[in-house]
Design a protein around this nucleic acid. Structure first.
Length: 439
RNA sequence: GGAGAGGUGGCAGAGUGGUCGAAUGCGCACGCUUGGAAAGCGUGUAAACCGCAAGGUUUCGGGGGUUCGAACCCCCCCCUCUUCGCCA
């Protein structure tokens, strides 16, 4: 959420900043809300102040044994006025808040201008693209043909069984491929906790709407989420549980509603979780293979920092995610998202894209974003500034480190051999119980 | 799921209808003291919102109610702890 005060006092500037990302701010509506708010709030507070002082007088009079009936009479009539004023104010504030919650973050000045992903800017490339002296297969063909006969029928990557159990966009992995998938998670978590200074967390996979509002998935992107069935009462009370679309939600919200100690910052948090996305609006997109699933695993990196440290933290976190691909020797590139392509809550985002040989292109495998105080304001996550002694909003940063399923895809395709087997990256061999080739 | 206890500031913890945004302690900040530190002493220290400011409003788990006035009384809900049951 943007700072309401900033918005009020710099409406036109905010509008032009938001226009950079293609968002049209309804300045007229906000100005109208604001002028109405001023009047109603002043009136309400005036009535409240009157009642408060009169009540105090009554209290004193009674204590002194004086007759308070005259003061009582003077305050008796304001009850209804005050009640209706308070109700109007509350309605107006709720309405305003609903609008504010739907306004995306203002892009950072360093985010390149652009309309869509075509205008993203490549920052760097790493690694050499593999060359093959045979006809390569994509991960689907590789996975389906691998280990045929293992477990009676089907290959190590079994889309039919996944579909039977749960429908489209669900997959089962078997045998050494399932283990490779697990090995990746272990490698990622170990690297981030042992070498990059992150603390490991285990978090709930079902969260309340408040948490989703905190990080910005709600109220605008409800259709992307899976929600648990709930009765109307729970829905009204904001208790309907939703499956997390990313660990960003539970991990970042760990610091919601709190005032952190400055000396504890930055917080570096990591967690491995499954992620669930309904992928509404993605029909026909990446229907083949493991790229776009309703359920996938991810190791997430989150940092909670002081405002002045956040930009460095983003660069640092990006490096931590890249490190995994370097360890795996997978070629990738880093892309700075343009203003038209950054997510709702982010002000600056780098995507890491890994080389996918069968598609002859780089595909997103991590998205590392700086949110400034946008999420912190929604979550009310603060730290006590030692110099001022006052609580101030923290900054939040997060990124995938990495998306596990897509990493598996990249390994299969980049390290495939002529006979359809997969060479296990060296760093993973210890996690694979010594298995060097998956066939 | 049953029974009991409880939810108050950064933390611990008093407060059962009026001058209570709230004692006290810890923590934190500043000052005195010291060669320096500790201890000690003194002062200060909740948050959100409105306002250029002075100042004002709101908030004692959440929501309703009673009252001129609610941390305090009534109703509903949530959470935590103890305990019994059940259970991976």
């Amino acid at each position: 959420m943007l700072d309401a005060k900033y918005l009020r006092n710099n409406l036109d500037e905010a509008a032009s900043q938001l226009a950079r990302r293609g968002f049209t701010l309804d300045t007229e509506q906000l100005a109208e809300f604001e002028s109405e708010r001023k009047v109603i709030q002043a009136k309400t507070q005036e009535l409240q102040a009157f009642r408060k002082s009169k009540s105090k007088e009554i209290g004193m009079a009674k204590k002194n044994g004086e007759d308070a009936s005259e003061i009582l009479a003077s305050v008796a009539s304001i009850g209804d006025d005050l009640k209706s004023m308070e109700a109007r104010l509350k309605n107006l504030l709720d309405e305003t808040n609903a609008v504010l919650m739907s306004i995306p973050n203002i892009p950072h000045e360093s985010s390149p201008d652009g309309k869509n992903e075509d205008e993203n800017i490549e920052v760097r490339k790493w690694g050499e693209l593999p060359t093959f002296d045979f006809d390569i297969k994509d991960h689907v063909d590789l996975g389906v043909e691998l280990g045929t006969g293992w477990n009676a029928k089907g290959g190590l990557m079994d889309f039919e069984t996944g579909a039977k159990l749960s429908g489209a966009r669900f997959t089962t992995l078997k045998g050494p491929l399932a283990r490779l998938h697990r090995a990746l998670i272990q490698l990622m978590l170990n690297t981030h906790t042992e070498e990059h200074g992150y603390s490991e967390n285990y978090v709930p996979y079902l969260v309340r709407p408040d948490a989703l509002r905190g990080t910005g998935q709600l109220p605008k992107f409800k259709e992307d989420l899976f929600a648990i069935e709930a009765n109307e009462e729970d829905i009204a009370d904001n208790k309907q549980l939703h499956l997390i679309p990313t660990a960003e939600v539970p991990v970042t919200n760990m610091v919601s509603d709190s005032i952190l100690d400055e000396k504890d910052l930055p917080l570096r948090l990591t967690a491995h979780t499954p992620c669930f996305r309904s992928e509404a609006g993605a029909y026909g997109k990446d229907v083949r293979g493991l790229i776009r699933q309703h359920q996938f695993e991810k190791v997430e990196l989150v940092q909670i920092t002081k405002p002045e440290d956040s930009m460095n933290a983003l660069d640092e976190l990006l490096g931590h995610a890249e490190k995994i691909l370097q360890l795996l020797k997978l070629p990738y590139r880093v892309v700075a998202l343009c203003t038209g392509d950054i997510g709702f809550s982010a002000c600056k985002t780098y995507d890491i894209e890994v080389w996918v040989p069968a598609q002859k292109t780089y595909r997103e495998i991590s998205s590392c974003s700086l949110f400034g105080d946008f999420q912190a304001r929604r979550m009310l996550a603060r730290y006590r500034n030692k110099e001022t002694g006052k609580p101030e909003l923290v900054h939040t940063i997060n990124g995938s480190g990495l998306a596990v399923g897509r990493t598996l895809v990249a390994i299969m395709e980049n390290f495939q051999q002529a006979d359809g087997s997969i060479k296990v990256p060296e760093v993973l061999v210890p996690y694979m119980g010594g298995i060097k080739i998956i066939k």
